[in-house]
């Protein structure tokens, strides 16, 4: 019970959650059949990274500001990445009338 009480302020919990989110994202990237689903999984994966950085930066570094700035940068980069990804997805859909990952295998050449 005492362990539970310290849980919200426990580095281990955040690390485990972050890794779980990372695993979920990775699973989605392997098994989704749709480019947009792919992007959604990618975002989850980035969330895992973000939580990890925030948790480490908060508990292990004397100055937590750096971790926050890094997280903000990650959020910004994720936004840019999502924009490019969606642009590609829309262009692919225009050209091939599908965004299913399996159908797009002819891109191999």
């Amino acid at each position: 019970m005492e362990f539970l009480a310290t849980l919200p302020n426990n580095l281990l919990l955040y690390v485990v959650v972050a890794h779980a989110l990372f695993a979920i994202g990775l699973y989605g990237m392997l098994f989704r059949r749709n480019l947009i689903g792919f992007l959604i999984s990618l975002e989850l994966l980035l969330q895992g990274v973000g939580i990890n950085i925030m948790a480490f930066g908060t508990y292990l570094v004397p100055d937590p500001i750096q971790a926050r700035i890094t997280t903000l940068f990650i959020i910004g980069i994720a936004a840019a990445e999502a924009a490019v990804f969606l642009g590609i997805a829309v262009a692919v859909f225009r050209n091939y009338q599908t965004i299913g990952v399996d159908e797009l295998s002819k891109l191999k050449g």
Binding site: R33, N34, L35, I36, G37, L39, I40, E43, I75, G76, A78, A79, A82, A83, L86, A89, V90, F93, Q97, T98, I99, G100, V101, D102
Partner: peptide, 24 residues
Amino acid sequence: IYIGAVCVAIAFGISLTRKTEDEG
């Protein structure tokens, strides 16, 4: 940023690329 920008963009993407049922 995530919900206001990224998720809105994804919602756009979903509505722009949805032809038939999703592939799952």
